[in-house]
Amino acid sequence: MNRAIQELVVENHGEDTWDIILRKSSVNVDYFISAEPYEDAITFKLAKATSEEIGVSLEQTLVALGEWWVIKTTSKNYPGLMSSGGENLKDFLLNLPNFHNRIMLMYPKLTPPEFKISNITSNSIHLHYFSKREGLQEFVRGLLLGIGKLYNSPIDVDLLQTRLDGSSHEIFKVSW
């Protein structure tokens, strides 16, 4: 994710802005390796400094990063993995619980989230998001919006339940 933040900032705001963000965040890493896990504190420092530098909320930054992750990072670096998710948005969402099992085979050091689905209708699904990592629900919203764009399917993503309100996990209603 840290490398994706860097790529997002550099492409949209330039190297100078990225250098300012690194200084503001006090993150002393010259190059992020995409397959290596980093502490969440580094990611949040970078996301917070990015939001401050470009003048948007942290939530907006996380959503933008989630979309970037799907459209630019994952689709570019792992096209076979992405195309194996399904031929349309609904299929991809139905296959999402199994998607991270494949990622764990590729990157055993990573601790991916777990997804479950419920309330499946012809134009919506409830996506249950379980993770040891807190504070990333807006990143997940961005991922879902990015998946919608990937399949040229406009979607709405509503957060129905969150750990911030004392629930055990997040539930998103994804409608198309």
Rank of each mutant, 00 (worst) to 15 (best):
E138M: 11
F130D: 08
E36A: 13
N28H: 14
L105C: 11
V9P: 10
E67T: 09
S131I: 02
S124R: 04
P108V: 01
I21T: 04
S124F: 01
E7Q: 14
E138N: 09
M106L: 15
S122I: 13
T61C: 14
Y78E: 00
A49P: 04
D91A: 13
S118L: 04
G142M: 03
L93K: 03
S51T: 04
L89G: 09
Y129R: 00
S57F: 05
S83D: 14
R23D: 15
F172N: 01
A35T: 14
E53G: 03
N2G: 07
S51L: 00
D165E: 07
D16Q: 13
K109V: 04
K76A: 15
I20D: 15
T121A: 10
W18L: 12
G66W: 07
F139V: 00
S124T: 08
L145C: 03
A49D: 03
Y107V: 07
K90A: 10
V157E: 00
T121W: 02
V63P: 01
L160F: 07
D16E: 15
P113D: 03
Q6Y: 08
S168D: 15
I21D: 00
F115W: 03
D156H: 10
T17D: 09
S34D: 15
H126G: 00
G166I: 03
N123D: 07
T17S: 13
Q60P: 05
K24W: 12
E7V: 11
R102A: 13
I155F: 05
L105G: 11
Y129M: 01
L94R: 04
D19N: 15
Y38G: 03
H100L: 09
L94N: 02
M106P: 09
D19K: 12
P79I: 07
F99C: 04
K48V: 05
I171H: 01
R3A: 12
P113M: 05
W68S: 11
D156Y: 03
T17K: 15
D158H: 08
D16R: 09
V140E: 02
E36H: 11
G142E: 01
K48E: 09
D40I: 14
N98Q: 09
I171Y: 02
K72T: 12
L62S: 01
